[in-house]
Computed example of a mutant assay.
Amino acid sequence: MPRFSRKGVTKVFFIETIADASYIPTRAELTGATNLTKAIAAIDGFSLENQEITTPDLESTFNSKIPGDDEAADSSITFYEDDTSSLMEEALAKGTTGFIVFLRKGDVPASKSLDSFPVRVASRSPQITVENEAAKWVARFSITDTPTLDAAVPAAT
Rank of each mutant, 00 (worst) to 15 (best):
residue 97 T to A: 09
residue 29 E to V: 09
residue 91 A to G: 08
residue 21 A to I: 04
residue 52 E to I: 10
residue 93 A to Q: 12
residue 119 V to Y: 03
residue 59 E to I: 01
residue 55 T to E: 06
residue 85 S to K: 13
residue 91 A to P: 02
residue 36 L to A: 09
residue 65 K to R: 13
residue 117 F to W: 15
residue 64 S to D: 12
residue 50 N to A: 08
residue 40 I to E: 08
residue 27 R to E: 14
residue 80 Y to E: 10
residue 100 I to T: 03
residue 103 L to M: 13
residue 56 P to K: 02
residue 52 E to C: 02
residue 83 D to H: 05
residue 99 F to W: 05
residue 49 E to C: 03
residue 83 D to E: 12
residue 65 K to D: 04
residue 94 K to H: 08
residue 128 I to F: 05
residue 90 E to I: 15
residue 20 D to M: 00
residue 77 I to A: 04
residue 119 V to H: 08
residue 102 F to H: 01
residue 115 D to L: 10
residue 59 E to S: 11
residue 29 E to W: 06
residue 60 S to M: 06
residue 126 P to R: 15
residue 85 S to P: 00
residue 94 K to T: 15
residue 99 F to M: 03
residue 121 V to I: 13
residue 85 S to N: 14
residue 102 F to K: 01
residue 36 L to N: 09
residue 105 K to I: 07
residue 107 D to V: 00
residue 111 S to C: 05
residue 109 P to Y: 07
residue 109 P to I: 12
residue 91 A to Y: 04
residue 38 K to E: 15
residue 64 S to Q: 10
residue 38 K to W: 01
residue 89 E to V: 08
residue 85 S to W: 03
residue 50 N to E: 15
residue 54 T to V: 14
residue 26 T to H: 05
residue 117 F to N: 01
residue 109 P to N: 12
residue 113 S to Y: 01
residue 40 I to N: 02
residue 66 I to P: 00
residue 120 R to F: 00
residue 87 L to F: 09
residue 64 S to T: 11
residue 127 Q to H: 05
residue 37 T to A: 08
residue 29 E to I: 09
residue 108 V to K: 10
residue 78 T to W: 00
residue 70 D to E: 14
residue 37 T to K: 07
residue 57 D to L: 07
residue 76 S to A: 15
residue 30 L to F: 01
residue 39 A to R: 11
residue 115 D to R: 05
residue 71 E to G: 04
residue 71 E to V: 04
residue 39 A to I: 00
residue 104 R to N: 13
residue 47 S to K: 14
residue 25 P to M: 03
residue 128 I to C: 03
residue 111 S to G: 01
residue 125 S to V: 03
residue 107 D to S: 06
residue 58 L to A: 14
residue 81 E to S: 14
residue 114 L to V: 06
residue 45 G to P: 03
residue 38 K to D: 14
residue 38 K to S: 14
residue 123 S to Q: 11
residue 104 R to C: 01
residue 38 K to L: 10
residue 95 G to N: 07
residue 24 I to K: 12
residue 122 A to Q: 10
residue 35 N to G: 01
residue 113 S to A: 15
residue 32 G to C: 07
residue 100 I to K: 02
residue 69 D to E: 14
residue 50 N to M: 06
residue 41 A to Y: 06
residue 44 D to Q: 15
residue 40 I to L: 08
residue 70 D to M: 14
residue 47 S to N: 13
residue 47 S to H: 05
residue 67 P to E: 13
residue 102 F to Q: 00
residue 97 T to M: 08
residue 119 V to A: 09
residue 45 G to D: 06
residue 46 F to C: 03
residue 116 S to I: 00
residue 23 Y to W: 05
residue 115 D to E: 15
residue 63 N to S: 13
residue 33 A to H: 01
residue 106 G to E: 06
residue 85 S to E: 14
residue 93 A to Y: 06
residue 127 Q to A: 05
residue 49 E to R: 13
residue 22 S to M: 10
residue 113 S to D: 11
residue 126 P to E: 15
residue 83 D to Q: 10
residue 59 E to G: 11
residue 30 L to M: 15
residue 86 S to R: 10
residue 83 D to N: 11
residue 84 T to G: 05
residue 45 G to T: 04
residue 31 T to G: 06
residue 87 L to P: 00
residue 67 P to F: 03
residue 56 P to A: 08
residue 54 T to C: 02
residue 43 I to R: 04
residue 77 I to V: 09
residue 48 L to V: 06
residue 39 A to C: 07
